[in-house]
């Protein structure tokens, strides 16, 4: 994050693009394949579970040591709310970036705080969801659905958590007045990562929760 070239005098790169911004885009490109593999794993095993519980259907499953009928696992209203919160956090962080670039501290700090809170809320939603699903009978190793679901959404959640830590760090810088307009790039890069985490969820939400 420490960076000694002011915004006004860009390092004379061959493309004219900022080197760190190019790096985060390169990293994002690489991450696409990371999530593609996790999603493949989920989809290949969709419908291959030997016992319940299942995402959308009632099924036979083991509950408290005996066979029982399990309700469908997914609670669409809850996850829809979490999805909306994550979407809005993407909106908030562009507003924060806009503030940072204009030197509007209030706009920067306000919207960035909102972003961090949204991120925390999403992680909280996921923790609650996992806890809830567990009590409905879906353990990590119960069936292939459980294993692949928790692995995919768990890795996404880890990315959200890292994003929250990153944005919170930038927020602390902003509050201390160390994010003047010429250093707005420090936020822009974190924001790019944050949007990426959001678009991954834009894929996961319908593919995992809604599709047949």
């Amino acid at each position: 994050m420490a960076h000694d070239t002011a915004h006004a005098m860009h390092p004379p790169t061959a493309t004219g693009l900022d080197t760190r911004k190019l790096a985060i885009w390169t990293f994002i490109g690489s991450e696409c394949l990371f999530f593609a593999t996790l999603i493949s794993n989920y989809l290949v095993y969709k419908g291959q579970s030997l016992v319940g519980p299942l995402p959308h259907e009632t099924s036979q499953c083991m509950l408290h040591g005996q066979m029982a009928t399990c309700e469908p696992i997914f609670e669409i209203p809850l996850v829809t709310f979490g999805t909306a919160v994550l979407l809005f956090s993407s909106f908030f962080v562009v507003l924060a970036l806009n503030g940072a670039q204009k030197g509007n501290r209030k706009q920067l700090i306000g919207w960035l705080s909102a972003t961090v809170l949204c991120g925390l809320f999403f992680v909280g939603m996921q923790v609650y969801e996992f806890y809830h699903f567990f009590h409905k009978g879906l353990g990590y190793t119960t069936n292939l659905f459980g294993s692949s679901f928790y692995t995919l959404t768990g890795f996404h959640g880890t990315h959200v958590t890292l994003g929250v830590i990153w944005l919170a760090t930038v927020l602390v810088l902003a509050i201390r007045g160390k994010l003047p307009p010429e250093k707005a790039l420090n936020l822009e890069i974190a924001a790019l990562y944050w949007h990426f985490v959001d678009v991954v969820w834009i894929v996961i939400f319908p593919v995992v929760y809604l599709m047949r």
């Binding site: 493309t15 885009w25 493949s40 562009v94």
Partner: peptide, 28 residues
């Protein structure tokens, strides 16, 4: 396009997202 600014940013950035996405889609 809008939040990640690909619409007005350099085409190189778009390429860095789109090419991996194509490979990712093909893999899935």
């Amino acid at each position: 396009m809008f939040y990640m600014h690909l619409k007005q940013d350099s085409k190189i950035f778009s390429g860095l997202l789109v090419f991996p996405l194509i490979i990712a889609a093909v893999v899935i």
